[in-house]
Each structure stands twice: as C-alpha cells, then as structure tokens.
Design a protein around this nucleic acid. Structure first.
Lengths: 107, 107
DNA sequence: TCGATCAATAGCCAGCGGGTTATCGATTGC
DNA sequence: GCAATCGATAACCCGCTGGCTATTGATCGA
C-alpha cells in the first residue's frame, strides 16, 4: 500500500529521470530519440526512465509508426502538491492551537 | 551545483526519513528518543536520517541537556513548491501559445 | 526485398545508501 | 562517584537501482 506521493518522490528523486520529465513539461511532446539526444545517457537508459515515469503516471506514450512520443501528465503531480499543503497545513494548525491557547490565557 | 529542489527530492524519497519529517510537521518538536520509538528502525538509523534532513535544511536541532530536540523547518519546502509551480506553469504557457495560435488562425 | 533506423528488452555490473551492531562522550539521577 | 540514559559516530553488510552493451522486433525508405 504505497501512498501516491511515495511513488512520486521516489520517481522524481533521480536527476536524470527528473530532467527528462522537465523537458517533457517544457517542450510538450518528444520522441525517445529526441529525449536521448540531450539526456546524457544511452537510449536504453532513457527508455528505462520513461518506463518508470509511465508506471508512476507522470507521462503518456503515443506510438506513431516506428517511433514513440512521450508527453507529461501534469495531473499526476497533484499528490505532491497535496502533500506539501498538508505539511504546511499541520504547521498552520499547530500555530492556530497556540493562538487559541494564548487567547484562553488572556481571559 | 545541485539545485535546491534536487536535494529535497532525494532527501524526501526515502519513506522512513519522510515519515520522520512528517511526524515533526504534525507534532512540532520531538526528541530523538521519541522519534525512534515509532520509526520502526534503530536509534542510529534515526540519527542518520535526522542528519540528512538537517543537511537538507528541513529540520533544526536544539540541544537540551543530554537530549536533542528536532523540529521541522517548513520554509525549506519552498523550492519544492516552486518546482511544481514551474512544471504546471510550463504547461500553462504552452496552452497559452496554442490558444494564441488558434486565435491567429481564426483571423 | 533489404538495409537502416527506432525503441524496448535482456543481462550484467558497480556504486550508493539504508540498515545493523558496537562503541563512545556527555549528561543526569541516586 | 557511579550507573544509567541519550544520541552521535564508526565500521560493516547487503540490496537496489541506474548505468552499460548486445540484441530483438518493428517500421520505414530506397
């Protein structure tokens, strides 16, 4: 039972893999060849990273003849956003609790 | 030249370490002993994780007698928030570009 | 049809990192 | 003063994962 944000953190932890995802976010739709050209690693390595990204739901693939296009799936980032909101939210509620306490002490 | 969000992703990728950070976010200020009690790993392992979190700027430590208190440093999360905003932002601007294109085609 | 290109898979290897136990220094309570 | 507790460090081990090369299957161009 791995939580959704767990997979995201693990998937995005690797710099090479994250760089691939970033390019897809910026440039929108790229072939494996195009991605490999600037990834700094071999084509199989890129394919492996794309596989991981796909299983994490972060990218979609589209087959067109003998080449495969990948594109970013930005909705998949929401668990990450939720997580950070939750963390900062915990802090906020602790702050509110403190404020409440101080208010009660005032009376 | 590791970018700030790079360190954050790597640091938060490990579930045990992230769980420790989450507890500090929820409960605010805990000793190593208290953290170890529910971490599911040994005390040295917890200390090691706290070291990594500290070097990432995600926690602060406070020495009080023979025990050390740790607390979350939420500001350190901002590079993460910035990164997600950037990614979704790229998408947004690509969408805008498309919209512009379509508008021009209308004319 | 046949050579060339594209991408995925297989198989392998090396390094990193997260776990452990043992220990040590510092602090505290009796 | 001495035993006990707390937390950090040392030293070590093992598994995972990210990299590579080689290969295969599929598609395209000539």
């Amino acid at each position: 039972m791995p939580q959704p944000h767990d997979i995201l953190f693990r998937t995005l932890a690797d710099p090479t893999r994250r760089a691939i995802f970033e390019r897809l976010c910026r440039e929108g739709d790229l072939t494996v060849r195009a991605l490999t050209a600037e990834a700094g690693v071999s084509q199989p390595a890129v394919s492996k990273h794309l596989g991981v990204l796909k299983r994490a739901g972060l990218v979609r693939d589209r087959h067109e003849g003998r080449q495969t296009h990948y594109s970013a799936e930005l909705g998949a980032l929401s668990p990450l956003i939720d997580w950070t909101n939750q963390m900062t939210g915990f802090w906020q509620s602790r702050f509110d609790d403190l404020e409440d306490l101080l208010n009660r002490m005032d009376q």
